[in-house]
């Protein structure tokens, strides 16, 4: 998943929603006879409209094109839901001899081990996201319920992150840290 998808989803929902509101409002407006010069008693599909659809050469081809365009957009919308911003490989500067690639897994495993040593951290999962030129780090941390938060935070955002930044030789490393607790929160069997 990815933040562009999130924005696209909201935009798509707004567009479809607005179109539906417009169509429904038009139907209601005609039904209650509030649209001038369009009588409410007329049939939804009038005889002239049907004649036009059947005699105009352009009508059905245009309808087919519209349907296909909508179909393509909707299929794409469906497919981008699975889009992730995960990077599988990193580019390592190998001089002029060519490009060297390193699997991101090598890096993320090191980060995970590094993070697991931080105070209060039980497990960590790291993912590199973004683009190869400007990678970011996503770190899912499972913490001990009695973790010392300030220390854990400095450990992760300081040491772990700086190590990775130095290793990848990056000036910036946008990072998202997500902390969850080892136990089912609130209903800890030790407590109840």
């Amino acid at each position: 998943m990815n933040r562009r998808t999130a924005r696209g989803n909201r935009l798509g929902l707004i567009i479809v929603g607005v179109l539906l509101i417009a169509a429904g409002a038009f139907a209601l407006g005609r039904g209650f006879g509030v649209i001038p010069r369009l009588p409410g008693g007329a049939p939804v599909l009038s005889a002239p409209e049907r004649r036009m659809a059947n005699t105009a050469d352009w009508f059905w081809p245009v309808a087919a094109i519209v349907a296909i365009v909508v179909l393509l957009i909707a299929v794409r919308w469906l497919f981008v839901q699975g889009r992730s911003s995960k990077i599988a490989n990193l580019r390592v500067d190998g001089g002029s001899a060519g490009r060297t690639r390193m699997p991101a897994r090598v890096v993320t495993r090191a980060v995970e081990q590094d993070a697991a040593e931080a105070a209060g951290v039980l497990r960590a999962r790291a993912t590199l996201i973004g683009s190869r030129a400007r990678p970011g780090l996503r770190l899912d941390v499972t913490a001990d319920e009695r973790a010392d938060w300030p220390r854990m935070r400095t450990d992760i955002t300081g040491r772990v992150r700086h190590d990775l930044r130095d290793c990848l030789e990056l000036d910036r490393l946008p990072t998202v840290v997500r902390v969850r607790m080892a136990t089912a929160g609130g209903r800890n069997p030790d407590l109840v």
Binding site: A143, T175, V176, R178, G185, G186
Partner: peptide
């Protein structure tokens, strides 16, 4: 450059 969060359960 760091965004951190904790789950609601956490």
């Amino acid at each position: 450059d760091v965004v951190a969060g904790i789950t609601r359960r956490g």
